[in-house]
Simulated assay, not measured.
Amino acid sequence: MPRPAPSPSLPGHLQDLTDRARGYVEAASSANTRKAYASDWKHFAAWCRRSSLPLLPPHPQTIGLYITACSSGTAERGGKPNSVSTIGRRLSSLSWNYTQRGQQLDRKDRHIATVMAGIRNSHARPPVQKEAVMAADIIAMIETLDRSTLRGMRDRAMLLVGYAGGLRRSEIVGLDVKADQTEDGRGWIEIFDKGMLVTLRGKTGWRQVEVGRGSSDATCPVVAVETWIRFAKLGHGPLFRRVTGQGKSIGAERLNDKEIARLVKRAVVAAGVRGDLSELERALKFSGHSLRAGLASSADVDERYVQKQLGHASAEMTRRYQRRRDRFRINLTKAAGL
């Protein structure tokens, strides 16, 4: 993140406000987002140096050439063509970085917008969807985990909460034991007799997800979380942490969200899910997103409830997650009299 230019000496109370304002700026985006923005800016700066083009101020022609280089794989030495989604993210990163430097990048300028439209038309493909883990799959997956170890308890809780809550991997590891306990937390849990309330902070604000108790303690996400908290002796801070000391100690730092993807891949292979595929093929087809897709594909309830649970703004987005739904259950042709 760029540092603001040094300001003249300020009275103490104004300096306090300045420091607080800087904290709010950082809080406006997640640490992962800021890291990605910094990486993209570094990538762009390196390309400008090699191309003998000025980095500042923002020139639409320069940006147009840069995204063309990204799409063709020439933006870095030995590079590969970037996907349309990656180029779109790089544009967002440049816009944000220029704004932090008090300058504006006009993404609607024809040198940028027209080139970007051409890239989309030429290279855009339907998104590659990860395969969903269904109810029977998730039950088989948790059965491969040792219930008697801390790591097994933690992993069972993460899989079941991620599945039942339809949570993103970053939302799973971003949970705290209770409200407002850490600066980097993305939410917290509250446990009640009938289930668990998960409060999450997303890109568009706060939302709450209800995770009800299951029909069996062996597959209940709430029981799994309660068991993990009890044996890990957690009372404060991140909910899901690294297990250290040969599986006997609990670390203080929260897990990285990539651990969720690794856990899903390992458990899928161990449980024999999609045994018709090779281990490599399964590693490519399944990820942390498979939990979210699994809930959307398995829950036999009104689509509105699934949409609310996943936090989607539209039903169309929810349908993209439903891998095995009957697309013709509602037949408008017959309903129209044909």
Score class of each variant (00 low, 15 high):
Ile229Met: 15
Lys334Pro: 06
Lys42Asn: 09
Val269Tyr: 02
Asp257Asn: 00
His123Val: 02
Asp19Gln: 12
Gly12Trp: 08
Gln307Pro: 07
Arg49Trp: 02
Arg230Asn: 13
Ala38Asp: 01
Lys42Gly: 01
Ile139Arg: 08
Ala336Leu: 15
Val222Trp: 04
Ala296Ser: 06
Leu234Ile: 11
Arg22Lys: 05
Leu291Asn: 00
Asp326Ala: 13
Phe328Leu: 07
Arg151Cys: 00
His123Tyr: 14
Arg241Gln: 09
Val128Phe: 06
Glu259Gly: 11
Leu159Ser: 07
Leu295Ala: 11
Val273Lys: 06
Tyr98Pro: 06
Glu190Gly: 06
Gly202Pro: 05
Glu190Ile: 05
Leu55Phe: 04
Gly102Leu: 02
Val198Thr: 05
Gln129Pro: 00
Pro57Met: 08
Lys308Ile: 15
Ala270Tyr: 03
Gly272Trp: 09
Val25Trp: 10
Leu197Met: 14
Met134Ser: 12
Arg147Gly: 10
Glu259Met: 15
Ser51Gly: 01
Ala296Tyr: 01
Cys220Met: 09
Ala45Met: 04
Gly73Phe: 07
Arg304Tyr: 03
Ala31Cys: 09
Arg254Met: 04
Ser39Glu: 13
Phe328Val: 12
Ala36Phe: 10
Pro54Lys: 12
Val25Glu: 13
Leu150Lys: 03
Glu76Ser: 15
Met1Cys: 03
Pro2Gln: 03
Arg319Gly: 04
Leu167Arg: 08
Asn97Val: 07
Phe286Val: 13
Ser170Pro: 03
Ala157Phe: 03
Gln246Tyr: 11
Ser7Asn: 10
Ala218Pro: 09
Cys48Asp: 01
Ser92Trp: 01
Lys42Trp: 05
Gly247Ala: 03
Val25Lys: 05
Ala75Gln: 00
Leu291Phe: 03
Arg169Val: 09
Ala21Leu: 14
Ala232Thr: 02
Gly272Glu: 07
Ala296Cys: 07
Lys35Met: 11
Leu10Asn: 03
Pro238Arg: 12
Met153Trp: 11
His111Arg: 14
Ile142Thr: 08
Ala299Leu: 15
Gly294Lys: 01
Thr219Met: 07
His289Val: 06
Phe44Gly: 01
Trp228Ser: 08
Glu76Cys: 11
Thr199Asn: 15
Thr68Ala: 11
Asp146Thr: 00
Arg254Pro: 10
Glu183Val: 15
Ala136Asp: 14
Asp16His: 12
Leu65Gln: 14
Ser249Arg: 15
Arg266Pro: 05
Leu14Phe: 12
Gly187Asn: 00
Leu295Val: 08
Asp257Pro: 03
Arg154Asp: 10
Ala38Trp: 07
Gly174Met: 10
Glu281His: 06
Asp300His: 03
Ala315Lys: 00
Gln246Asn: 14
Gln322Tyr: 04
Thr62Ser: 00
Glu303Trp: 08
Lys178Pro: 00
Asp326Phe: 08
